[in-house]
Nucleic acid binder design. Structure first.
Lengths: 193, 193
DNA sequence: CGAATAAATCAACAGGTGTTGACTTGCTTC
DNA sequence: GAAGCAAGTCAACACCTGTTGATTTATTCG
């Protein structure tokens, strides 16, 4: 018998990565509670039990998804507080390159599962370590408060757009440049007002 | 035998209200998926089946909770766009009176269950009808975009504070007035920038 | 008082959840 | 090539979910 699909040689690190990728994609679109381990396993073409074997528990899998590519943390590009408004506005703009798009996906995963006790605790860690900390340090004076205000705007836009699917903030073609400028201005206000 | 608790006479409207109140309190603190009907029933001192009898389904109960006191809609106080920044800043301040506190609870219920497909759709309706619509109308020029920006900030603060429990935005005593003023300024920027 | 009616409860269903132990398969190394 | 070991699968587990039909209880009306 001729196989149509090539036999995937047994490869622990590859299957692990496959599961991780499948989980990522699911968690971008559904909440922690909404996603079932069987869904993820099915997407990855793997038995459910294997997830438990590799990641211990659903919570462990989620933690690994969230902390997956931490080396590419959200805020390494901007060098000074002055760059922040423009940087964040670009991040919010939807014509982002692949790298930024992936960073935005991580952000959306955070927002989607922020409720749900187990996932929420993991997310709280991530927010403090990878977002609020670096931001506050970069800003300097009143860093903590300013970082919180910036993050609030970021979260609000993300929730309104990606979770609630309200589309008035979806920048379409013509307005994009103007709208991005407005966001830049808003971020600046959060830093200076 | 003497009863310690008075026998509650059978009263359909009263029990209905009790269930509704119990559901409200649960949905403020847990997400749609996280709350079980048995939890709510237990809080209300009632059998689970009664919920189905009164509200048809979990979704029906949630809808009724969300649309409960619609007459007291979120944005009836401000009379003009100029009043909005101060009004929203006051709404965000935590020393709000009972009325505003209740409105904030409704807002948090929205944020908590915005994920979860069933609840999300209900919430989307509410957001358009009771929040974005009135806001845009009040603002006038560029109303839709401005309303979205205002709501973004509102959502961000709510999520960061009540869902993620990040406390740097929790205004404690001394800073409160100063912090409220900053928020007012930020809302103003969202309208004018 | 006794019959009728509505309110509330009981019990169970069918489906789905994460998790676990036993089992089989495939690769590698002697 | 056969043994050993790890990778992957199967099956089942307790548990919990929302929902529903039959049953009991309290109230009301003739």
């Amino acid at each position: 018998m001729v196989r149509t699909t090539p036999i995937r040689k047994r490869n622990p690190v590859a299957t692990r990565a496959t599961i991780l990728a499948a989980a990522h994609q699911r968690f971008v679109r559904e909440s922690y509670d909404g996603v079932g381990l069987r869904d993820i396993a099915s997407d990855a073409g793997v038995d459910v039990a294997l997830i438990g074997r590799y990641f211990g528990s659903k919570e462990g899998l989620f933690r690994e998804v969230v902390f997956a590519d931490k080396e590419a943390d959200l805020f390494r590009e901007p060098k000074s507080a002055a760059d922040l408004p423009a940087f964040l506005a670009q991040l919010v703009a939807e014509d982002a390159d692949e790298d930024r798009q992936h960073r935005m996906e991580m952000f959306i995963i955070m927002l989607r599962s922020a409720s749900s006790p187990k996932a929420g605790e993991i997310i709280r860690d991530l927010v403090h370590l990878d977002v609020l900390g670096p931001l506050a340090e970069l800003i300097g004076k009143d860093g903590e408060l300013r970082a919180n205000m910036l993050l609030s705007i970021l979260i609000g836009i993300g929730v309104l757009r990606s979770i609630m699917r309200v589309d008035a903030l979806s920048l379409d073609d013509g307005d994009r440049a103007e709208c991005t400028e407005r966001f830049r201005c808003l971020f600046e206000a959060a830093l200076t007002c």
